[in-house]
C-alpha cells in the first residue's frame, strides 16, 4: 500500500449511518475534476465491499486503501 498518494480533498465519514458514506462520497466526486483524488475516512466495515462495488458501477477507481485500526481511508480517483 502506498501512502505517497496525495489527496485533493479529505472527507471524514466516521460513524455516520447507512447509507450516507456512499452518498456523501458520490456527491463530493460529482463536484470534483476528472483525475482528482478524494480521501474518504470511514469506520464502516461494509464500506470495504460497498466502496469498490460503487466505484465499479459508477466507473471510478479506488487507487489505494489504508487501514489504521478501525479507520480505513479510501483513495478514490475520479475517472469520468
Amino acid at each position: 500500500m502506498s501512502t505517497e498518494i496525495k489527496a485533493d480533498i479529505n472527507m471524514d465519514l466516521k460513524g455516520i449511518a447507512c447509507p450516507m458514506p456512499v452518498i456523501k462520497v458520490s456527491q463530493q466526486i460529482k463536484k470534483m475534476q476528472v483525475g482528482q483524488i478524494l480521501a474518504a475516512e470511514t469506520t464502516d466495515p461494509g464500506a470495504h465491499a460497498d466502496f469498490p462495488a460503487w466505484a465499479k458501477s459508477t466507473g471510478n477507481e479506488i487507487v489505494a486503501t489504508e487501514k489504521k485500526d478501525a479507520v480505513t481511508v479510501f483513495f478514490i480517483k475520479k475517472l469520468k
Binding site: 447509507p19 456512499v22 452518498i23 458520490s26 465491499a49 460497498d50 462495488a53 460503487w54 465499479k56 458501477s57 459508477t58
Partner: peptide, 15 residues
C-alpha cells in the same frame, strides 16, 4: 442517489 446505491448493491452481488 438511490439508483446509484441500487447499482452498487447489484454490482456487489455480481462480483
Amino acid at each position: 442517489e438511490l439508483v446509484m446505491l441500487a447499482d452498487a448493491a447489484v454490482e456487489k452481488g455480481k462480483s
